[in-house]
Design a protein around this nucleic acid. Sequence first.
DNA 1: TATTGTTATACTCTATAACTATA
DNA 2: TATAGTTATAGAGTATAACAATA
Lengths: 152, 152
Amino acid sequence: MKTRGARPIGMSLWETTHVVHREFERMLAAHGLNRATWFILLTLDEAVHPTQRDVARAVGISDATLTHHVRNLEDGGLVHRTRDPDDRRVQCIELTDEGRAAFARIHDDAMAFDRRMRAVLGPETTAALLGALDTLTTEFTRPGDSTPIPRA
Amino acid sequence: MKTRGARPIGMSLWETTHVVHREFERMLAAHGLNRATWFILLTLDEAVHPTQRDVARAVGISDATLTHHVRNLEDGGLVHRTRDPDDRRVQCIELTDEGRAAFARIHDDAMAFDRRMRAVLGPETTAALLGALDTLTTEFTRPGDSTPIPRA
DNA sequence: TATTGTTATACTCTATAACTATA
DNA sequence: TATAGTTATAGAGTATAACAATA
């Protein structure tokens, strides 16, 4: 058939995302994290006393999957959980001191990563890229799918 | 800590890619395929008598993983394999008639998908987006990592 | 010995369903 | 009854290592 036309946008989008993402994951792995656990720590940093369910929603994974990752974080000593005294069904997740230190280190690396991207693109292209991505996200997001931080 | 600055580019890139990709996978799933098998069919359409190893390289997966997917395609009747008479170690993969028909249908849908993206962006923004993606891919591709069509 | 591909096996991420404990 | 979270289990996609067949 030899179907050849312009390269599909989706192909470029996929390729770039995964080339970039691979580098980002290498950085996270050097700190003992992966994408899901990093998103969890980000959510914990930004939310005020979230329940696990809140965190799962924010990260875009199921409760069961969150339990799995939180257990890993807890085993690694980055996080610790206590039952909420006001509602003992609720687990309160908090960063440990070690977790806060790790978060700060990774956050620095993540910011450096972002600066590298912005530097290579330049301010105008960066703005154009972000605008285009936003347009596509709006176009392809389904009303039902509320995934603030998208899943894999 | 409440670390808040501009939204990282990587986050937008990740989110958009996966919102778009989710829709694309829905389309593929309606035809009984997934991303890996679609990339395999694309490679078969474009390459001339590739070995399985060639296809694995092009898709960016291991030989063992390719075997796994090719078996699924074969079970689905889209592909069939014969040993190369000139070198009986080599499997020649070919689309069946049914495979060619399925490929044509999916290809039509994929082109429609691409038109939808280009339409919502407009020609200038499309060009700007592709340029930015290309810049990022170049910046973050490691010399060793040759992944023409990227893996998950 | 080197290469092509397969098999056996296992790991990670994910989900659903059934469950516990609380409310 | 309803909710928060856990456990048990499974499936998809991936990989590595050992292997068979062929060169």
